Computed example of a mutant assay.
Amino acid sequence: MSSVIEKGTPAKAPAAGGREKVDLRTEDGNERRLYWAVADCWTVVRRGLLTYRRHPSFIVWQLGFPIVSVLLYGYVFGGAMKSPDGGDYKDFLMPGMFVMTMAFGLMATAMTVVTDSSKGVIDRFRSMPMAPSAVVTGRGVSDLLAATAELAILAATAVAMGWRADGGFVRTLSAFALLVLLRFALIWIGIFLGLLVPSPEAAGGLYAVVFPLTMISSIFAPPSTMPDWLGTIAAWNPISSTAAASRELFGNPVASDGSWIQENAILMAVIWPLVLTAVFAPIAIRRFQRLSR
C-alpha cells in the first residue's frame, strides 16, 4: 500500500552517511554544522594517531630525531661553542633546540599531507559527506598532539643532560606554551605546502627552505655576533623571537643588543604565530576546498 504525503509537506530523506538534511540557514542548521565539523575533525585526528600505532617507525623518527639533535649539538658541537654571556652553552642551546624541533615539524606535516594526497586518501575524504574543513583541521590537531609529545621528550632529555629552567613554574609553562603556539602556526604552513607540492619527492626539496630558516636565527648564536645585515634578518625571523622569549622565560636570558625586536621578544613570540596562522590557515583550507576531485 502506497504511503500518502500531504500536499506541501516534503518528505525528509536522510543525507549520505546517515545525516539528516538540515537547512544550514537556520540556527539549528548552524549548530549541527558545527557539531559535524568537530566530530569529523576528531575522526581525522584519530586516524592520524592510529598511524603511529600501525607504523612504529614514524614514532622512532619523529621522537628520535629531537633526541639525536640535542645530543649531537650539545655534546659534539657544544664543546667548541661558547655562551654569549660566558656561561654554560647548554643553557643557551636548549631553548633554541626546542624551537628548532618545532620548526622542523613543518616538514613532517607537509610530507604527511602530500603523501595522503598522492595516494588518493584526500580524494576519498572529499567524496565523503564530511565537513570540508575537517581534513585540514584534523591534520593540524593530530600534529599538534605529536609535537607536544616531542617537546616533552626533548625537555626530559635536556634535563638529563644537565639543563635546568630557572624561571619558575609559571614562566616555564609559559615558555612551553609559546613553543606549542609556534608549532601550531607552522602546522598551517606545512598543510598549505603539502597541498601545493605535487609529490613527496618534491616535498623533500622544502628542506632547502626550512634549513636556512632555522640557521639564520638565534637558535645557535645571538644575532649580535653576526654581520649587521645578517643579524637584522636573523633578529626579525619569527623563530628568533620564540627562541629569545623562551630563554627569558626559562631563566636562561641573553644580553640584548638593544634593538626593539629583541627587547620585545615575548610580545613578538605571540604576535608572529598569530599573524602566520591568520594568513596560512584560511588559504590552507581554501586550497583543500579547491582541489580537483
Rank of each mutant, 00 (worst) to 15 (best):
V135Y: 10
D228V: 06
P14R: 10
C41H: 06
M97D: 13
T101N: 11
S246D: 14
R286D: 14
A108R: 00
G86R: 12
L173M: 05
A156Q: 06
A269H: 00
N30T: 10
L186V: 04
L186T: 10
V114E: 07
L213S: 12
V170F: 15
I216F: 02
T232A: 13
T214F: 12
I266K: 01
T43P: 06
R46E: 13
G231I: 04
I261F: 11
R171F: 09
M100S: 13
A39C: 05
T9R: 11
L182P: 05
L50Y: 10
S2D: 15
G162L: 10
G105C: 06
C41V: 03
V159R: 01
E263N: 13
S217G: 12
L195T: 05
G8R: 02
P253V: 05
P273S: 15
Y52V: 05
P132R: 00
G167Y: 07
R19D: 14
T109F: 02
W229E: 15
S117R: 09
V60N: 01
L93D: 15
R183C: 09
M226Q: 14
S69P: 07
V22L: 09
Q262A: 12
V38P: 04
A158D: 10
P212F: 05
W260G: 07
P10R: 02
G79P: 03
G105H: 14
P212Q: 05
L274N: 15
A131D: 08
M130Q: 03
E150V: 10
W260E: 14
R124H: 08
I283S: 10
M81C: 11
F125N: 14
P129G: 06
F92P: 08
G120N: 10
R124N: 10
I153R: 07
G231L: 06
N264T: 09
P200W: 00
L72A: 06
I5P: 11
S3L: 04
D28W: 01
K82L: 09
A177V: 03
A80R: 08
D88V: 00
A185V: 00
L274Q: 13
M100V: 11
E248Y: 00
E6F: 01
W260D: 14
R19V: 10
W272G: 14
E248C: 05
M97E: 03
P227G: 05
I59H: 04
P198L: 10
L49I: 14
V254F: 07
P227Y: 02
L182D: 11
D143Q: 11
A155D: 07
A155V: 02
L213K: 09
G8I: 01
E6W: 00
P132I: 02
V121K: 00
E31V: 03
T148P: 01
T112W: 12
I285C: 14
F184Q: 15
G17K: 05
R286G: 12
M111L: 04
W236N: 14
S127I: 01
G96R: 03
M102T: 11
A16E: 01
S83K: 01
A235L: 04
Q62C: 07
R25Q: 07
I233N: 08
S174P: 00
D123Q: 07
L173H: 02
W272Y: 12
S218P: 11
L230S: 12
P200T: 13
M268G: 13
A37N: 03
P129C: 01
D28Y: 03
L178A: 07
I216D: 15
T277C: 06
F58C: 13
F98H: 04
A265H: 09
Y89W: 04
F211V: 12
V22I: 04
D257P: 00
R25I: 11
F65I: 06
